[in-house]
C-alpha cells in the first residue's frame, strides 16, 4: 500500500535473545500513533531495527514505506528513503557542528552535482531553531556535545524538521524534559503534522500525549502489541498502571 508505513511480522533478536515477536503495525500518512509500554519491552529495539542498527538482527519480517520494503537497505539509505528516528539517547559527535551535520544530511539527499544553497539553508535552519527555542549560537556547537538532556531532544526534533521525513519514529522524546521543554518539543512536532507525515511516538508516560494528541494508541508488552485503541487508551493505561498490561498480554496470548 502506498502512503503507509507497514511493519509486518517483524522478528528481531539481540544475540540469542528474541526481543520483537511477530510485531505488526500500520501507520497511514497523516496519522500519529503512540506506542506505550513498560521498560524493557522492546520499544527502542523496534525503533533501532527499523532504522537499520547493525546490532539488531532482523530474523524475519518487513518494514514497508509507501510500498517499498526498506529492510535490505543500509541505515543511511533508509533515512534518505524517508524514515526518521529521534533517538532515545542521541549520540555526541565531537567536532562536527550542528550546522555542518544537518547540511551534510541534506546534501546527501541531493544529486551528486548539486549543493545546498547556503543562505536559504541558514534561513530555514534559524527559523526552525527559533520555533524550537534553540539559541542560534548552537549552530556552531558540536552535535549534542555537552548538551543537557532537553537540548539533545530539541536538537533531534530540529533535525526532523530540517530533514522532512515521510515517517518519523520518536523514541521517548519526552523523557528527561520538564513541562516547558515538553511543550516546546510537542509544538515542534505538531507543526509538522499533516497529510505528508506519519509518526510513531514511543513513550513511557501518558503526559506527552496531552500535547501530541495521537490518532491511535498501541500498548506494547514483551515484544508485541497487546491492545490498540484511541487516545483514551493512554488514559486508561495511566490509571490502571503497567500491571494491567500483563493481564492484557495474558488475554492476547489466550485469544
Amino acid at each position: 500500500m502506498s502512503n503507509t508505513l507497514e511493519i509486518k511480522n517483524l522478528n528481531v533478536s539481540i544475540g540469542d535473545k528474541q526481543i520483537l515477536k511477530d510485531f505488526s503495525l500500520t501507520v497511514p500518512k497523516g496519522e500519529v500513533h503512540a506506542i506505550m509500554g513498560p521498560n524493557g519491552t522492546g520499544k527502542s529495539t523496534l525503533a533501532k531495527a527499523m532504522a537499520g542498527h547493525p546490532e539488531y538482527e532482523v530474523t524475519s519480517g518487513e518494514v514497508i514505506i509507501d510500498g517499498e520494503n526498506i529492510m535490505e537497505m543500509e541505515a543511511d539509505e533508509r533515512s534518505r528513503a524517508g524514515l526518521f528516528l529521534a533517538f532515545q539517547y542521541p549520540m555526541e559527535i565531537p567536532g562536527v557542528t550542528i550546522a555542518n551535520f544537518i547540511r551534510a544530511a541534506l546534501n546527501a539527499r541531493l544529486p551528486d552535482d548539486e549543493e545546498l544553497n547556503a543562505p536559504d539553508y541558514y534561513k530555514e535552519l534559524y527559523a526552525k531553531m527559533d520555533l524550537l527555542k534553540i539559541d542560534r549560537k548552537f549552530t556552531a556547537r558540536a552535535v549534542n556535545d555537552g548538551f543537557s538532556g532537553g537540548e539533545k531532544k530539541r536538537c533531534e526534533i530540529l533535525q526532523m524538521a530540517m530533514l522532512n521525513p515521510k515517517y518519523a519514529v520518536l523514541d521517548e522524546t519526552d523523557s528527561g524534559l520538564d513541562i516547558d521543554a515538553l511543550k516546546v518539543v510537542a509544538e515542534g512536532v505538531n507543526s509538522m503534522r499533516g497529510p505528508n507525515l506519519g509518526a510513531l511516538v514511543i513513550t513511557h508516560y501518558q503526559r506527552l500525549l496531552d500535547y501530541i494528541v495521537p490518532d491511535v494508541v498501541h500498548v506494547m508488552y514483551d515484544g508485541r502489541i497487546v491492545k490498540s485503541g484511541d487516545k483514551n487508551l493512554a488514559l486508561e493505561l495511566e490509571s490502571k498502571g503497567y500491571e494491567w498490561v500483563k493481564e492484557l498480554a495474558g488475554e492476547a496470548a489466550a485469544s
Partner: peptide
Amino acid sequence: IEDDEIFYMLARGIPREKAQELIVYGF
C-alpha cells in the same frame, strides 16, 4: 570512532564515508 556515532550519522542519511570525513574534519 564509536560504531554508535557512525550509526547516528547514518540514521540521518549521511553515507558512511561522509560521516567519517565529517568526524575527521572536526578532529
